[in-house]
Computed example of a mutant assay.
Amino acid sequence: MKNVLSFLLGGSIGFLAVLYFIFYPEPWSLRSALVIAASLLVGIVLSILLHECGHLFSGLTQGMHLLNLSVGPFVIERHEGKYHFHVVQSVLGYLGRVMMVFPERLDEKIMRQKLIRYIYGGPMTNIVLGTLSLILAFTALNYPFFLIFALVNLFLGVMNLKPVMAGSVMTDGMVIQKLKSDNPADYAVLLTGYALLLEELTTKDVKQWSPALIENLENLISVGDDPKSRVYLQTLGYRYLPNEPAKISMLAEPVAFKNEVQKSDYYSDITNITYATALFFGNEITDYPEIESHLQKISKLDKIIDLKRNALLSYVHGDITQSIQYLRDARNALGVWHPLYSRGEMEKRLIDCMIDAAENTHS
């Protein structure tokens, strides 16, 4: 059914484009080709921006606060009441993203309803604007840009409503499907993520976070109903490492190093690097069976994870100096702001602890 709908969407877009040029023929020339190419480029960028702004304004109507909004490498971040602009390469392949948070704890049912409206805001903005632009293209404003802008918006809006995974990222449609589900296991990870963002607004010191939230993270990982829950191993690593590596090892061991071949999977990467870091702090990494092979299967999706993997490989090989350099490179790569770590305070503290441990080994 999904393939049929995609075929119908593509066919409809093609039919509208052909129909437009039948009604309003354009003399083909280099100039007209350049105009169409420029219109397509501007239309795509503008459509992505409007999609994210649709999420933003829908979120504001639901009482949410903006954390950051990005289109390609361009990021607007709200930090300590001020807005900051960054140019940072996106991660995980998304072209645009907006992150928002509820300023207070909400009842689960109410939060789900508000999040559904917030998520719908992006694709519905594209669909509404695309429809209006299409009407204008066939009536008052017979200019190719409005047709192209309309078709790009309709494509982006409809495709985002399909409940699928785009690499390691869920489409809006999949998020909505999970939030509407009657099975708590489908939306538990999503709701916990917003609870985590709220806790992070209170303090960046994860060791001071609510014990109930930490217990919830541990339960989600232990149950394992949703592979995306493994991303919370990273948060728990910030809480328990370097002093309590056994707790991380206990949570991560059942799911770590299970990928038989190297592949791009962010959730597996998080699991594997967190487990390997726990082994490092527990002085077990050099004795772990086939550790080199396991580390080499971690993908290069995220530069920070890749550098930490290289640091641990160098440590296993006995090259402590190179290991420390990789860790310093990872800390520097976090910069002022990172798409997956935001300001990265907790990750920087963890990397500093790894550097100290490696230096103690070296001395």
Score class of each variant (00 low, 15 high):
G282M: 00
L213S: 00
F257C: 06
A140S: 14
G11Y: 09
D265P: 02
I305M: 00
S29N: 12
V223T: 14
M346G: 11
L30K: 14
P245R: 01
Y288N: 09
L49T: 11
T125Y: 01
N272G: 04
V206N: 10
G93E: 15
V35Y: 11
S210F: 09
E292P: 03
L201P: 05
S363G: 09
D186L: 12
S6I: 13
K204M: 12
K297N: 14
G63R: 08
Q234S: 11
T131F: 13
F57Q: 10
D182T: 12
I355G: 06
L5R: 12
A140Q: 09
L40E: 04
V18E: 02
S133G: 05
A311W: 01
W28I: 03
Y20S: 07
V152E: 04
N310S: 11
Y24A: 08
Y94K: 12
S293W: 00
W337Q: 02
K247T: 09
A185F: 10
A311D: 00
V152H: 00
D302S: 00
N259H: 12
S58N: 14
T192E: 04
K348Q: 10
I248D: 05
L106G: 09
D182K: 12
L213E: 01
L34R: 13
M1P: 13
S222Q: 15
L66C: 13
E215T: 01
G96R: 04
F102P: 03
T192N: 09
I36E: 05
F15I: 06
A150P: 03
I76E: 06
L9G: 08
L217F: 00
E284L: 04
Y120E: 13
M99E: 15
K162V: 10
G122A: 02
I110N: 15
F7D: 10
S293R: 13
S90P: 02
L92P: 09
D306P: 07
L106M: 15
R117M: 12
E200V: 04
Y341D: 08
S6W: 14
T277Y: 08
S6D: 13
N183E: 04
E215Y: 01
Q234R: 11
D265L: 05
I135N: 01
G167W: 08
A38N: 03
Q325K: 10
P289W: 02
M1H: 13
V35P: 04
I320A: 02
E108R: 15
N272K: 09
M346C: 10
F57K: 06
Y315P: 03
N160D: 11
G344F: 01
L69P: 02
G157M: 08
I13K: 06
L161A: 00
G167K: 07
N126G: 06
L191W: 06
M111Y: 14
E80R: 07
M170H: 15
V189W: 08
N216K: 14
F21P: 03
N219Q: 09
A37P: 06
Y120Q: 11
L41Q: 07
S58P: 05
M124W: 14
F74Q: 08
L279S: 00
G14H: 06
A358P: 02
F102Y: 15
T235W: 04
Q262N: 04
R343I: 05
L236S: 08
I305G: 05
C53L: 14
F7R: 13
L34W: 10
F281R: 04
P144Y: 06
L350R: 14
E290L: 07
T271P: 07
G122I: 02
I176V: 13
L95E: 14
A246W: 11
P254D: 15
